[in-house]
């Protein structure tokens, strides 16, 4: 049996199991500048997030509430960790690179080429790259990011469909 679970270890790396079980950024922020909900109607995953900007326009803090699988919770938590202190344009670039990685397993793409300033952040998302082998789970990983972008843009609701 262990051989079939080896592939699963790529999907459920310890980092993911850990963040999925004990998210550090779970919870609504008492004071926030923007909020948005993400919804994956196909599987019922839901996330709401709140974000607060620093005076210089960078993201200061993100908090979230998620009802979903280990992948979506871990992804939301890792995202919250990584975007803290990041300017909004970089968040967009990270999202598109991360989306590539989640879909295809590789990346970072040109936007955040190795050695580029976002490479280190993207590397911390690498444990989620395993979802590319599970097409139905890619949306679990990208849902919190869709919600984050929606919050930034003031859209408030998004869906990962």
């Amino acid at each position: 049996m262990s051989e079939s679970f080896d592939a699963l270890r790529d999907l459920y790396q310890d980092v993911i199991l850990d963040h999925g079980r004990h998210p550090r950024h779970a919870g609504r922020l008492a004071a926030f500048d923007a909020t948005a909900k993400g919804d994956n109607p196909m599987c019922g995953d839901r996330v709401q997030l709140w974000l607060k900007y620093a005076p210089d326009g960078r993201i200061e803090k993100t908090g979230f509430e998620a009802r979903g699988c280990a992948i979506s919770v871990a992804s939301a938590d890792l995202m919250a960790e990584i975007v803290a202190g990041t300017p909004v344009e970089d968040v967009r670039a990270l999202f598109s690179a991360f989306r590539e990685m989640a879909k295809h397993g590789d990346g970072p793409d040109a936007a955040v080429a190795p050695g580029g300033k976002l490479a280190e952040k993207l590397e911390r998302l690498r444990p989620l790259a395993g979802v590319h082998e599970f097409p139905s789970r890619v949306k679990c990983a990208t849902l919190p990011w869709h919600a984050l972008i929606a919050a930034i843009e003031g859209t408030q609701e998004t869906s990962s469909e």
Partner: peptide
Amino acid sequence: HAHDVATLLDR
């Protein structure tokens, strides 16, 4: 979560 259960059973 049920989705994680389904993925692990699927494997």
